[in-house]
């Protein structure tokens, strides 16, 4: 069973290569290590159980990100609990407030803006690719990016340099 391939890669190779990506998505979305771990594991469980046919590694990576985001959404809706923004809860992910590294500011955005900005700036996806991953219209994604940047600047007090 373990010899099955995903876009020409073994399960272990996929895990090693995309573990950070999936972990980043889960942490970005849930902002809690314990919750993020659950979704991280569920994502790879689905990968192994469903074993979909992938056209390429890019397709595989996009599939993993999309499944991870969906897992996080389902996790939140199932647990119905408030996810703190200020890192007071035990296990919460916190980033040091830095003038250049504004990850902490991104984490204070609403999830819909956070997802779009994260995929654009951290995973370096294009608008159309983000639209496919999130299942939204490209224009909607553009709008999310624009408004997200504006809100982000308000949070970190940035200049009009975006």
């Amino acid at each position: 069973m373990t010899d099955r391939a995903f876009a020409g890669m073994s399960y272990d190779a996929v895990l090693q290569k995309y573990a950070d990506t999936v972990a980043g998505v889960c942490v970005m979305r849930l902002q809690n290590w314990a919750d993020a771990e659950d979704c991280f594991q569920n994502t790879f469980i689905k990968l192994f159980q469903k074993s979909p046919e992938f056209r390429s590694e890019a397709h595989l990576k996009a599939w993993l990100i999309r499944v991870a985001i969906n897992e996080c959404r389902n996790y939140i809706s199932k647990n119905r609990r408030f996810l703190p923004l200020d890192g007071l809860e035990q296990g919460a992910v916190s980033f040091h407030e830095d003038e250049r590294d504004i990850s902490w500011a991104l984490m204070r955005l609403e999830p819909k803006y956070r997802e779009a900005l994260y995929l654009y700036h951290c995973e370096e996806y294009k608008v159309n690719e983000i639209a496919q991953i999130l299942g939204k219209n490209p224009n909607t994604v553009k709008s999310l990016l624009k408004r997200g940047r504006e809100k982000l600047k308000l949070i970190y007090g940035g200049e009009k340099d975006g």
Binding site: D12, L15, Q16, A19, D20, V22, A23, G24, V27, M28, W33, E37, F40, Q41, F44, F95, H96, D98, R100, D101, I102, S103, W104, L106, M107, Y118, H121, C122, Y156, G158, D161
Partner: peptide, 21 residues
């Protein structure tokens, strides 16, 4: 002049990967 390096370079904990393996 801004970046998301902390989030971008976030590493999956070793335990997570071992469990997933």
């Amino acid at each position: 002049k801004h970046n998301f390096d902390s989030l971008k370079n976030l590493k999956a904990p070793r335990e997570w990967i071992e469990k997933a393996a």
